[in-house]
Amino acid sequence: MASLKALKLRIGSVKSTQKITKAMKMVAAAKLRRAQEAAEAGRPYASRVEQVVASLASKVQVTEGSSPLLAGTGSDQVHLFVVATSDKGLAGAFNSNIARLARRRALELQEQGKTVKFLTIGRKGRAVLARQFRDGFVHAVEPGDLGKLTFADAKGYADDLIRRFEAGEFDVAHLFYATFKTVLTQEPTEQQLIPVKVPTPAVATSQPSADAVVEYEPSEEAILDSLLPTNIAVQIYRAIRENAASEQGSKMTAMDNATRNAGDLINRLTIEYNRTRQAAITTELVEIISGAEAL
């Protein structure tokens, strides 16, 4: 049995750990609310852009002259995975869930003989994937605090991506991130970025605004061409926002668990401490009594 002093020290150290995890949980809860509000505030823009792209893309004929962002390069040999995670850990399985999905998809594609390249946004995703796919890395961004990223940052990533696409570095781009469902569940998600997924006509025509009477200036094609890069930025921005909320939700849950575990540990240690103390007292009493009897 450990000595009284050792137990006391141990309890003290677990208590201070608990204080830290409790504080981290509270910080995560506050940040989560802000991240959730931000994610909701960005929704009208994202959904509107998506609608317009969908209704335009379904009207415009895909021809030789169409933007490759819409039509693709005609090949699907080289895939680029844009894996968005966070820079910081201590958020439960948040980062590893996203990385695991990306890894599984990458192995599937490699089995089909395709080349898979990686571009990571966030240090944690890079750390996990670099072990297995060292050769495939084209670029890694470390964005810092996800909650502080603006649309301009997302646009920067999108511009970089489009430059690489135009330079012929890849044919298809996929985006990986975690969709925020609830505080307890965040779902790793894959989404095709380039070429743009055109929804089935049934979805596009169900929108009342997609009537033939709408006039376009300059032209449908020109609007679509200017909208496609924006759309990619919007998708990346949304992924980052979702990630920001997911990260905080996951962190909150993880820190809540840690706090509870620390509480259990403290209880167990306290019982052990009290028992040890009582045992020492009993031993002393027995010594005194038997000493007195011997006289």
């Binding site: 317009v52 009477v213 709408v214 006039e215 376009y216 200036e217 609007i223 200017s226």
Partner: peptide, 12 residues
């Protein structure tokens, strides 16, 4: 300029 009742229109 856009006033109420403008015809459906889209522009960059």
């Amino acid at each position: 300029g856009v006033l109420e009742g403008h015809a459906p229109f889209m522009s960059t």
